[in-house]
């Protein structure tokens, strides 16, 4: 499991890690996929939506990971436009596949906590799963609006990206229910993390939707706003769902003392409040970079960087606090002794 989670952080980076390193990682993923498909495949009857999400996520992780390394073939790398387009096609879908697995885990946890599996079988859940798959396959083009590839690639992703408004409106619509569920389960640690992840989904989706409009993307592209989007999603959504899973499992086997609970709750806030500042400072840095690069004629690179730096100080301090919060949570988690049966 640890290898499974750590594999992602390396791949999130925009980089192109050497293909020699890629092979063992790919093998590890294929083995993992076989294991998942084998155990899930054995489950007969109608699947809850999270099983669909896990299997789809794992399959596409392998496909897109392979795609990200296609540049080793000359046909791919010897055309600048093809190389860049595919690099971002694969990276976009790779993150999408990962998110599919993590969101599946989120839904699974919701079902376990509420003791009610119904939501995992509704038409609505399957509709959103389907919407997720379509976006995973086609919306990556919003990274490459400004790359001179064929216009239809961008039109497809513009249209597909806009379907995510449906998800956004759904979050707003079911907001009251979400809040009442939080109150109902307020003494459950896992729920607190799930609720935080939901707020982060809301914020990052709003940002993603705006960035997917080409006319806005023309300004936000190539700035720290992209980083805000990537980090907000990774830390805000994914880490909170993984923390929720961790604390859900731990709470099953461990009776938290008052003092421990206090530390975990503090850690929760120390991770989330600075994360908001961290996220906003990246957006600020991005707006400032966009302004100097695209609106002020002849602003030099170092001029721009001087203006961006102010935000980056705030970003660094906030980032340090986020790390402190998350470390506190991880340490509290690791201290729990797993009983031997």
């Amino acid at each position: 499991m640890a290898a499974f989670f750590s594999a992602n952080s390396e791949e999130e980076s925009t980089g192109s890690s050497p293909p020699v390193l890629a092979l063992p990682l790919l093998c590890a993923w294929i083995l993992f996929a076989i294991k998942v498909i084998h155990s899930v495949g054995a489950i007969k009857g109608t699947w809850p939506v999270y099983l669909w999400m896990w299997v789809t996520g794992v399959i596409f992780f392998i496909i897109t990971y392979t795609e990200a390394n296609l540049w080793v073939l000359p046909w791919f790398r010897n055309n600048v436009i093809r190389d860049i387009t595919i690099q971002w096609k694969s990276n976009g879908s790779l993150v999408g596949s990962w998110n599919m697995m993590v969101y599946g885990t989120g839904i699974y946890l919701m079902c376990r906590i509420s003791g009610n599996q119904d939501t995992a079988y509704t038409k609505k859940s399957f509709f959103f799963f389907f919407l997720g798959v379509v976006n995973l396959l086609f919306n990556w083009g919003h990274h490459t609006y400004l790359v001179p590839s064929a216009p239809w690639i961008k039109e497809v992703s513009y249209i597909i990206s806009m379907t995510e408004w449906v998800i956004f409106l759904n979050i707003i619509r079911s907001w009251r229910k979400t809040v009442s569920d939080v109150i109902k389960h307020k003494n459950l640690l896992a729920y607190k993390f799930l609720f935080a992840s939901e707020i982060w989904v809301f914020l990052n989706l709003a940002l993603a939707l705006l960035m997917s409009v080409p006319a806005i993307n023309n300004y936000t592209h190539g700035t720290h706003i992209t980083v805000a989007h990537a980090m907000g999603t990774t830390i805000g959504i994914n880490t909170m769902i993984l923390m929720a899973s961790l604390f859900y499992i731990l709470s099953e086997i461990h009776q938290w003392t008052k003092k421990e609970l206090l530390i975990v709750h503090t850690g929760f806030w120390v991770a989330n409040i600075p994360l908001l500042i961290f996220w906003l400072s990246l957006i600020g840095a991005g707006i400032s970079k966009a302004y100097y690069e695209k609106m002020v004629p002849n602003a030099s690179f170092s001029d721009t960087m001087t203006h961006v730096m102010t935000y980056m100080y705030v970003f660094t301090i906030a980032g340090f606090l986020v790390l402190t919060g998350l470390t506190t949570l991880a340490v509290m988690g690791l201290r729990v002794k797993i009983p031997r049966e």
Binding site: I81, T85, K89, I153
Partner: peptide, 16 residues
Amino acid sequence: SYKVYTDGTENSNGLL
């Protein structure tokens, strides 16, 4: 993907 690789990125300005 096949369509993107061939038709969508066949920009001859970008050839090395």
